[in-house]
Amino acid sequence: MAKKKPSKRSKPVRTKPCPMCQQGIEYIDYKDLALLKSFVTDRGRIKARRQTGACAQHQSKLAEAIKNAREMALIPYLGG
């Protein structure tokens, strides 16, 4: 009789807490370029939630802030 294969997912998945919730950031300012730049790739694209670990609320605010900053030519749309 064949042995039962061990399950691939032996450990429960632990989700990382949202970095902005941890830091207690309530309002994401589109002028805070140091914060925004840590959430865009080298090519200027917004990092996905699976990369940033942000909660839905903060990721949504973050995307809005990045788009506002792009419109005001503070961060690039694409390229670097």
Binding site: G24, E26, Y27, D29, Y30, N68, M72
Partner: peptide, 13 residues
């Protein structure tokens, strides 16, 4: 130009 309402987006964590 860009007008935003900063207090609108403040929410308690």
């Amino acid at each position: 130009m860009k007008t935003v309402r900063p207090e609108l987006r403040v929410h308690t964590a």
